[in-house]
């Protein structure tokens, strides 16, 4: 039986509306044995199938330490994502996972940690933030900067509340377009840099979000004096197979699905196309 392209069935446990077009799907594998054995790492992703519609890649947003279930946050934008949004708890998805490389977790112990997320870029970072918070003492200063278009476009609003309460981390949020509920900062996410104390030499930065945002974030971080390999980001490409075979995700000689999606700026910089 060939397995590379054959998904495992997973049951949707819970669907949470995050924003007008984004939902979080928590699920577990239908096969109990497979589910019990299943492990993944922050930064890896799944290929999720709606059978008869197609397959699409999503980063894990859940904490890899909590085994038994996992979750992805999905924005409805095309065929597969819209079909997922039409599903209900109890429905079955096809899942191939875990795929891709992962965020460095052990390697960055002892450093200050900076997260810079934009919009739908927070989910994959959340799968790293949470296990880090599980061992909070292993890291220095802990800062999360989050920007969204409007207050309503922020995902994980309750989780953001919880983080905001915590004394051992700094969470700053900003929106491009405020509404009456918003009394925080207004502007793009990079404007939050002035409001924080960052020691570039002692910090590792993780950034995820729309490509334009990432570009500006990296520009600023470099200007602050971040070493190139202390800036960690993820790359997105049209993906099909997730296993380095279909060729869609290749940039230069890297396959984002296998060699990525997590890259340091030092690695990204060397790619012949960006």
């Amino acid at each position: 039986m060939q397995k590379l392209y054959l998904p495992q069935l997973a049951v949707i446990d819970q669907i949470v509306d995050e924003t007008a077009d984004t939902k979080t799907f928590t699920m577990h594998f239908d096969n109990p044995h497979y589910n019990a054995e299943f492990r993944y790492l922050s930064g890896q992703f799944v290929e999720a199938s709606v059978l008869g519609v197609g397959e699409a890649p999503f980063g894990f947003c859940s904490n890899p330490n909590r085994t038994g279930t996992f979750a992805v946050t999905v924005r409805a934008i095309g065929r597969v994502t819209r079909a997922m949004h039409a599903m209900h708890p109890g429905d079955l998805l096809g899942i191939r996972a875990p795929l891709g490389n992962h965020f460095p977790l052990q390697e960055v112990q002892g450093y200050d940690i900076l997260f810079v997320a934009g919009g739908i870029g927070l989910p994959p970072l959340r799968s790293l933030i949470e296990p880090m918070l599980d061992m909070r003492e292993k890291f220095g200063r802990f800062t999360i900067l989050y920007g969204a278009r409007t207050p309503a476009d922020r995902v994980y609003k309750t989780r953001l509340e919880e983080w905001a309460q915590r004394k051992d981390l700094t969470l700053l949020q900003t929106v491009d377009v405020p509404d009456e509920t918003w009394n925080g900062p207004v502007g793009v996410v990079t404007t939050l840099f002035e409001r924080t104390h960052i020691d570039p030499a002692a910090t590792v930065a993780f950034t995820c979000g729309p490509p334009v945002m990432i570009r500006f974030v990296i520009q600023d971080l470099l200007a602050m004096g971040f070493p190139e390999d202390h800036i960690i980001s993820t790359l997105e490409r049209y993906m099909k197979c997730g296993v380095g075979k279909c060729g869609h995700c290749a940039i230069g000689h890297k396959y984002i699905c296998v060699d990525g999606p997590v890259f340091s700026w030092r690695q990204i910089k060397k790619l012949p196309e960006r």
């Binding site: 392209y5 199938s49 059978l51 008869g52 519609v53 197609g54 397959e55 099909k240 197979c241 075979k245 279909c246 060729g247 869609h248």
Partner: peptide, 19 residues
């Protein structure tokens, strides 16, 4: 060797995924 992966429904309930 590059390929695309697509789902093809043959009937309401049945179909195949091909590359």
């Amino acid at each position: 060797t590059c390929f695309e992966v697509l789902d093809h429904r043959e009937t309401e309930k049945t179909g195949l995924r091909f590359r």
